[in-house]
Design a protein around this nucleic acid. Structure first.
Lengths: 201, 201
DNA sequence: TCGAGCTTGTTGACGCTGTCAACATAACCC
DNA sequence: GGGTTATGTTGACAGCGTCAACAAGCTCGA
């Protein structure tokens, strides 16, 4: 048999490592991911991963970058398309952002936390985050054009909006918001306040 | 000599541990704090800290809780006082929040990151965070009364505002915002958008 | 005064971690 | 088919958090 997509010693260990690491992050947080545990779960030795990633940080960076990609895709699905743009669509983008974070809490934490990841510049992660931001800017521009929001520097406006939804998501994930609070209502009020502010003169 | 404030074997090792851990966090981030390194720097053995803190997480929790306390004090200093309340004062509270985060990046990360801290409930940390939130609610209430912002559920309004400044601070600290961006202008636009949204009907 | 008892700090040890060098094996290509 | 490269394994090392056993310092009652 000639090297199909599940060939070689293990059969695309690189992909398996990424998937397993992602699964472990969602199960027990980033701190539960160890090179040895991931090897155990995949039935390979503790250092097999080093043939595919320079170190543990590189593996986590790849997982985080994939997370940025998935988030970008989801926001694009909601926010793209020229027709039907308007305040409600913009709101749905914000809500989708927060929802993604809540559904993928461990992942989201990893994406934004420099703690588990070496501080050296990891271009792969930087690019994935930039691609997400570019999408936000694109959405902002679209809604500036059709008069939904004020015309300001689109980058600044995108940063403000990003900060608002990221902050809410972060507070929710880290358990800073009392459990008695109605989360859906809070998300809604956040997007309302933000959008009101982006429309007002 | 009878036990003055620098007596006993080492002389208030507990306080020294807190100070040293805080210093190390600001120098090299939370990951640079190890029980052994902290002992080395203080000239005590690696496990001396265990007489004062149940484990490493408890030590970090104490440092984080102190951080919440300092942040609360700074916001109170800016936002309190019955006289002179108004939109500009409210804006200054928001700016002070972000400034604190930027000046104490390592600390701030620790305060909000569950990663370095065990997931069990640490009441000390919970209470310190609650005290900060209570202060935010108090400030919101004050400015509702004098008509600066809309009258809504003060808790929800405080959460929205908290999320906005926390999100911006977090993006800045984690390096998600391009270095070319004018940070002061971005902070200003965030508070402007937020406050416009909190006034609009 | 002095010694019992509590508080504080030290040392040895354990199992865990990330990582590297040396080795082994499988697949590919000429 | 043999050499080369890609991939996986094993042994080893230093560093980590933490605990049990031990040592020393301080306080306070008799």
């Amino acid at each position: 048999m000639t090297l199909d997509d599940s060939a070689y010693h293990h059969g695309d260990l690189r992909t398996a490592l990424l998937a397993e690491a992602a699964a472990m992050i969602d199960e027990g947080g980033t701190s539960s991911v160890t090179m040895r545990a991931i090897g155990r779960r995949l039935g390979v030795s503790r250092s097999a991963a080093y043939r595919h990633f320079a170190d543990k940080s590189a593996l986590l960076v790849a997982v985080a970058a994939a997370g940025f990609g998935r988030l970008r895709d989801r926001l694009e699905a909601v926010g793209a398309g020229s027709a039907g743009a308007g305040i409600e669509r913009l709101r749905r983008v914000g809500e989708e952002y927060v929802r993604f974070a809540l559904e993928n809490a461990g992942h989201y934490r990893l994406m934004y936390g420099k703690e588990a990841i070496t501080r050296e510049d990891r271009p792969e992660l930087r690019e994935a985050a930039n691609a997400l931001f570019d999408e936000l800017v694109r959405i902002v521009r679209t809604h500036q054009r059709n008069g939904t929001i004020k015309r300001q520097d689109p980058h600044q406006q995108a940063y403000v909006a990003w900060g608002a939804v990221h902050g809410l998501a972060s507070l929710l994930i880290e358990g800073q918001i009392l459990t008695a609070v109605d989360v859906d209502a809070l998300i809604r009020q956040t997007t309302s306040t933000l959008l009101d502010g982006m429309r007002a003169g």
